[in-house]
Simulated assay, not measured.
Amino acid sequence: MLGLRSENLISPKPDLSIVCIASKNGMISLSLKAAIFWFSILVFCILPYSHATDKIVPLPVFHAGFYINAFSDIAIEDIEVALRFWTEKLADQANYPSDTTVYESLDKMRTDFYQGKINFIVAPPLVFVNEFDLTQLTDGYKSLMHGTAFDTLIAVTHNQSGIQDFSDVKNKQLLMLEHDELMHMYLDVLTLEHFGKQSKQVFAKIRRSAKSSKMIYKLFFKKTDVILVYLQDYRLATELNPQIKHQTHIIAELASIPRGLAFFHIRTDSQLRQDAIEEAEKLHTYPKGQQLLNLFQADRMIRSSLSDLDTTRQLKQRYQQLLKQYSLP
């Protein structure tokens, strides 16, 4: 486990430590910007608690954690520089000592969560469903982008591929995001439903890419037959280049997928949870908060709940049913 630490001697404050974990082991392809975004949200949410107190208590430390596989396309040196910048910014503006941990292991992240070393996590939905006891989670918050907190996972092909619907994909080439296991699970569900086989037995080749934009343009230039991508990314690409929309078409989709969620540990102080969520929901009402939201193309922050994981849980249940139906491990 890699770690960065920045601590300053300051006046005592209530013990309100929060930890942020950004993970891309599941569906979501979080970039370094996205991780910094979530870390910044916490900085803004903690600011209201930086007042002095008459009671002498141990100095709280702001702990920030990130999952290393979320940044597979970025050098660790660049990650360290970015994380150090934000911890120093927190120490300067919120007057808190702080440290940052980069996790190499989901097991370690989960253990720290259960042991109380962290009490707030940001992760893709499949990571929550696969790696955490959901009874230990409670409301946090999520970003609202383009008027919605959810996205749609789509399979797209180019018009010259000879593919009219998903039943035509056998022996074709497919491109999908790295480290997006929800995307891979959805692909297996589609191939099991149409062919009774897992995706690796259906497609001639399955490759991974770090960037949605690169996948979309490879499809546009016919370097692959099919891609799995998120609808928001596809729409952005078609706005920048309308020809993409004219020369491609969608052959399958899965709606109501949150791109990133944040939950508190259920043992976290209830007043702290409520105050932090309320402050997150106010970000769009003042200039610095709006500037941060605009930078990451988010409209505002809203409360998350465990029901946001419903589509992911249903997908996993369907996947397990199909594996059992076809006697697959």
Rank of each mutant, 00 (worst) to 15 (best):
P14Y: 03
H63G: 06
D99F: 03
L9S: 08
F113G: 02
G65N: 08
M109A: 09
F39D: 03
E104D: 14
K33C: 00
T101D: 12
E7S: 09
I74E: 04
Q115Y: 05
C20I: 11
E88V: 11
S6F: 15
I76P: 02
Y114I: 00
W86A: 05
W86P: 03
L47M: 10
R84Y: 11
W86H: 12
N25C: 09
R84V: 07
G65Q: 08
V19K: 14
A82K: 07
D107R: 02
S50R: 05
I28L: 14
L106W: 06
V57S: 04
D78Q: 10
M109H: 04
T53M: 06
Y103K: 05
F39H: 10
T111Y: 09
K24E: 04
T87D: 05
L83Y: 04
A64S: 10
N69I: 01
P12T: 07
V43G: 13
G26Q: 04
M109T: 06
Y67E: 09
K89Y: 14
A94M: 04
Q115V: 04
T53K: 03
W86S: 11
L42P: 03
G116C: 01
D92F: 15
L106M: 11
Y49E: 14
K33A: 03
L16T: 08
D99Q: 09
D92H: 08
L32K: 01
D92M: 15
L90M: 15
A64K: 10
A75E: 03
I36F: 02
K13Y: 00
C45D: 02
A34W: 12
K89R: 11
I10P: 03
A22Y: 09
K33S: 08
Y67Q: 04
N8Y: 12
L90I: 15
P14L: 03
P48D: 07
I10W: 00
A82P: 02
R110D: 07
P97T: 02
A75N: 07
D54A: 04
G3N: 08
I36C: 03
S17A: 10
P48F: 02
F85Y: 15
A22T: 14
G3F: 11
T101S: 11
W38F: 01
D54C: 03
V57E: 15
F85I: 12
E7T: 09
S72P: 01
N25R: 14
N95P: 01
Y96E: 10
D112F: 02
A64W: 06
S11K: 13
L59G: 06
D107S: 06
S23E: 01
K89A: 10
S40V: 02
I41F: 01
E80D: 01
P48T: 06
F37I: 01
L59C: 02
R84I: 12
R110Q: 13
W86R: 11
A94T: 05
D92K: 13
F62M: 05
K33Y: 02
M27N: 14
V102C: 00
K108I: 09
L32Q: 01
S11Q: 13
L42F: 12
W86V: 13
